[in-house]
Design a binder for these strands. Structure first.
Lengths: 235, 235
DNA sequence: AATTGTATGTTGCATTTGCAACTTATGAGG
DNA sequence: CCTCATAAGTTGCAAATGCAACATACAATT
């Protein structure tokens, strides 16, 4: 079988494996490539969950449909990212979500039971695959809980403080840039964009933080901590 | 080694294994039991992460300390639950959290690398352990994303609608009870308790939902869907 | 440099929220 | 039945928010 290794090489699920090893393993796993036209479905609500999916090329998106037929976008799936992996790993049998191809998508479908059941014969690297899978799922859980930490605060002001402090902590410096634009930051924090801008202005006016576009500088970290705790309002 | 199997038996990490198998495996994994006095630490911020912890008896809690020394409770850890497992599985080497014993705690510490590296000699059930671990971590991720779905909505009204609809969906009926009290529900949705009561009153007045304490009945699911989407305000 | 499109900042306003204080309901013990 | 403690509902109010409309800043292209 001839797998396009350029695409597979960046997939974190295969981290630590070289092309030859990936190809060997994919064959052993019974993975199959599949192409999807724009607008077609990689997975539909109600489908039985048997595969972990990997988007190799193109872009897809995860949707949930409510009982009135409205679709809510849950998350995009970019090249080299997995989909349905948390559901499958959690042992959920029937998909509660739909995954739609937003462009032409080349995907890889890997039978989950083949991932979890070891093949003593061929795959010396099977351990690594399982470990990678566990790391990916665990990492997603941690990223979500971090995001949750921010959004759980009651006021926009506190959410913003929480977010900026975590950015600074990640960077290890009070001077940092963020990779989201204002609208993206507002979406991430689940608040209104203009309300976010308003709060940014306020903490800038009182000298707590300087910023310009996506560049930030926390002048007074302690005050920002107090804001996070809700002990300082917008005077 | 003499493990108290009454405690271990309820641990989901060991689901599918009988006492003898659990004991055999724990020995093989080099797991060790440890007791902690009330107020002592099962894990401290900055500790290197090498073990997956299981609380067998007693109660612990996960805290995060900010730079001003304030501690924020992240989550409780009840008997038979794991702690630090997502961090370890994600490959994080240094703990960002502290786990404190709220009572006398009996815990089990399992070296993570022994879980992930197979021991061909003794443990025929090692596969199951890894699969259980993956399922636990994946399930936590899904539970968190569900909670996030509710909290991500902008108004208390929408958060409430989202929560009630998901309860009904889980139960498969528009009549259900919730296992949280009002304060618990407010905490879960990250809103103020009285504001939550206020919204409950409103959707009760207009006939969308009937409730008494923890018993709910969704009279008009379609209207509740509209509220969820923000298309119906509180008239 | 002018143009154009987009991102960001600003502001007024109606609504919602958190909060505090209070009332009412419920259930457990005496 | 009464008392008490706790949970839940109610309400007034100041503050925060979403929203819409608009102003300004920035970047890319010509």
């Amino acid at each position: 079988m001839d797998f396009n290794c350029l695409a597979e090489k960046n997939v974190e699920l295969f981290a630590g494996l070289c092309c030859a090893e990936i190809n060997e393993m994919l064959e052993c796993l019974g993975a199959r490539h599949s192409d999807y036209e724009k607008g077609s479905y990689l997975l539909m609500e109600g489908d039985s969950l048997k595969y972990v999916g990997v988007v190799l090329e193109g872009q897809a998106a995860v949707f949930k449909t409510d009982s009135l037929g409205n679709r809510a976008l849950l998350s995009p799936v970019l090249p080299s990212e997995l989909f349905a992996e948390a559901l499958v790993c959690a042992g959920i049998k029937v998909s509660p979500v739909t995954v739609e191809a937003l462009t032409l998508v080349k995907a890889l479908l890997i039978p989950f039971d083949r991932i979890m059941t070891r093949c003593p014969a061929c795959c010396s690297h099977h351990n690594l695959l399982i470990r990678n899978m566990l790391r990916i799922v665990a990492y997603k859980a941690i990223a979500m809980s971090e995001k949750f930490d921010h959004v759980a605060h009651k006021t926009t002001r506190q959410k913003l403080a929480s977010y900026l402090l975590s950015c600074a902590a990640r960077k290890g410096s009070n001077r940092f840039t963020v990779d989201l634009d204002r609208q993206g930051m507002a979406d991430y924090l689940c608040v209104n964009r203009s309300a976010l801008s308003r709060e940014l202005s306020r903490i800038s006016e009182d000298g707590t933080v300087s910023y310009h576009r996506s560049s930030f500088f926390i002048r007074d970290p302690e005050r920002l901590e107090l804001i996070l705790l809700g002990e300082v309002g917008g005077e």
